[in-house]
């Protein structure tokens, strides 16, 4: 199942955040959506989720125009902050979020280093982030949007999250929003670089490095965005 964004534009007052954004999320792909702060990464996700309206452009799923009510059942969203109920246990959280889609959670928390009966509020930062992602997976989404899931995590937790994302692409297509380009380089099949309201680059991380003749993705990104 693929998702395609075409010529998307969005303004907030006089400020045009998105000018002409087009990219594609292929089946079982992990696409890194990167760009400088305020370039509209989260706005794009919110537009896709139907939380915000676009000024122009089109979005299709498998070539069909998006019906937000339908697409919501196929989408999982993990925000920057952890979003689950701290007064529920891990299993209760998973069951609750699965129930919102009239299904049961296929996720076994023990497989992700989480104790099912532990209260969510008592988990460590990494565990909370993992639980947050697992909650988004509890209804088996086809598309998963991860908004900076590794922010504030220790290196071990980061590693675990990245491993988890790596596993997810077997069942879902993932849009991964982050500023940590090493993580992008590590797990993304494709990157979409946003800057000045436009898509500056869409393709594999290595293609960008090659194009910019940079030694790593971070240098390539800076060169692409700043032109330096």
């Amino acid at each position: 199942m693929s998702l395609e964004v075409q010529h998307l534009s969005k303004s907030f007052g006089n400020k045009q955040v998105l000018r002409d954004v087009s990219f594609k999320l292929g089946d079982n792909q992990v696409v890194g959506l990167i760009g400088p702060s305020g370039c509209g990464k989260t706005t794009i996700v919110k537009i896709i989720l139907g939380l915000r309206g676009a000024d122009g452009g089109e979005m299709t799923v498998d070539g069909k125009r998006i019906d937000f009510e339908k697409v919501r059942k196929k989408v999982g969203y993990v925000a920057q902050q952890d979003s689950f109920y701290s007064f529920l246990t891990v299993k209760e959280n998973l069951d609750y979020f699965a129930s919102l889609y009239d299904t049961t959670s296929p996720v076994k928390p023990e497989l992700f280093g989480l104790e099912a009966v532990a209260l969510a509020g008592s988990l460590s930062g990494g565990q909370k982030k993992r639980l947050s992602i697992l909650c988004a997976l509890s209804h088996r989404p086809k598309f998963l949007f991860l908004d900076e899931p590794t922010v504030g995590l220790d290196p071990v937790s980061k590693k675990q999250i990245l491993q988890l994302i790596g596993k997810l692409k077997k069942v879902s297509s993932v849009i991964f929003i982050t500023h940590h380009l090493k993580e992008v380089e590590e797990i993304c099949d494709k990157i979409v670089v946003l800057g000045r309201g436009d898509v500056l680059f869409e393709g594999g991380p290595k293609v960008l490095m090659k194009k910019t003749k940079a030694s790593n993705l971070e240098v390539a990104f800076v060169e692409l965005v700043t032109g330096i």
Partner: peptide
């Protein structure tokens, strides 16, 4: 504040 309402809102419910 926790984001759980948004998550619920974005669900099929």
């Amino acid at each position: 504040d926790e984001g759980t309402l948004l998550r619920s809102y974005l669900s099929a419910t």
